[in-house]
Design a protein around this nucleic acid. Structure first.
Lengths: 222, 222
DNA sequence: AAATACTTTTAGGCAAACTTAAATTTTAAT
DNA sequence: ATTAAAATTTAAGTTTGCCTAAAAGTATTT
């Protein structure tokens, strides 16, 4: 069953909200897709008829197993294209999201598998998000939010969970990209801001909003 | 002015018919796009309003300068993607056309220019069709139809002017790909079939239908 | 428990791109 | 030069995916 581009975008949005543990309200989807609640209800009916979601009136949307499978395929395509754009065409990590949003809708199994092969089956995209394999499974590796990091411990940046160019450019400018090594000097109990220290640079502070989108891993010692 | 995918497909179809020297009838476009004449008339009105074509009622369609420019951009995208698919992803020349038909609709200037750079600015696609440069000009190099080739002269295949997988697979199987060297032993005056001879292989015959889609260049001697 | 605020759905409409059927125009044939 | 055939356009209707406005349902406050 072939989905339209609009249907794919809804499926992806619902998946995204679900995986953030939020209840998937009509409003939330409308906001994410920059459309209106009435349009979401409209599409919800169609998606339910295609067995891609459950829709309990007034209580929100939920992907079926089938819908989830579709979503993961779309995400696989999206993230592979992001890798391609950065690694092969030389785009920056803050530029690729909108382009991948278009490329992801080309649903050709062979194309995607050959692209994956060409890229040597990457496991993470340029923002550190895991890429599902052809069967749809992905290994979420252990992650800690920068805003909850242990103090004075060697850390490595593994993921930025927000595609906005503004955030990615801001981090880049601060010297933070995937793989950057840093320490957290302190976390401000009042506003949640995080003071970080990169090698050979003066310490600086990141706001809670920023720190809540940056994931790290510990290394060294243990 | 951003064209829809449907509009782009019409523009491309009209360009294709024009460049084959045919008069661009409603019927011809409908046939090419596997739609109905009424749909073509419908779209023709919209395209005319957008100054992309002229439409003299009952007498056919014609691209304006603006329409032609758009068409050439679409073709550039299409042919660059075909190169990518063959050279980087390892697809065969008979597989890439339908995929490129999808990829060509991603209209991002930077993407295309980076793709071109990545491919080292190829001048011809996997079927020997010339790729317009970023400004829209392409050098059509001298070409001769196999069906009009000089007899007993060393020839090199430069282009196959038909994307159908059936033809491309047939030619491949006969040993004919881009760059293949051959001679024409004779051309049958009755049915237009062409007897060709490849190195180290027995001669064989190609029908007029096939020979009219294969272009060659002479080489050696002069 | 009632009133108010907020969310969601329903209803009615619109534009794009298609369809079929009927009317019209052009072309070809007698 | 009519007439018949073919091509084209018009008219009316469909589906997808969106919209606004109004109605209905849910949540919150007092």
């Amino acid at each position: 069953m072939q989905l339209s581009i609009a249907e794919e975008n809804y499926i992806k949005a619902i998946y995204q909200l679900e995986s953030q543990g939020q209840k998937v309200s009509t409003n939330a989807v409308a906001h994410l897709l920059r459309t209106r609640p009435a349009s979401v209800t409209d599409m919800a009916n169609r998606l339910q008829q295609k067995k891609l979601i459950h829709h309990e009136k007034y209580y929100g949307l939920q992907l079926t197993a089938l819908g989830k499978k579709q979503a993961i395929h779309i995400i696989r395509r999206h993230r592979l294209w992001e890798c391609f754009l950065v690694e092969k065409l030389g785009f920056r990590w803050d530029e690729v999201h909108p382009l991948a949003e278009e490329l992801e809708h080309i649903r050709d199994e062979r194309l995607i598998e050959r692209l994956a092969h060409f890229l040597q089956h990457p496991e993470f995209d340029p923002h550190g998000d895991p890429i599902p394999d052809a069967k749809g499974s992905f290994q979420q590796h252990e992650q800690i939010l920068l805003s909850q990091a242990p103090l004075n411990h060697p850390l490595r940046v593994t993921r930025v969970a927000d595609q906005s160019a503004a955030l990615l450019q801001y981090l880049t400018q601060k010297g933070i990209v995937l793989g950057t090594r840093l320490r957290v000097l302190q976390i401000n109990a009042y506003d949640g801001s995080v003071e970080v220290k990169l090698m050979k640079k003066p310490a600086f502070t990141l706001s809670r909003e920023v720190a809540q989108h940056v994931y790290i891993q510990t290394y060294g010692k243990n």
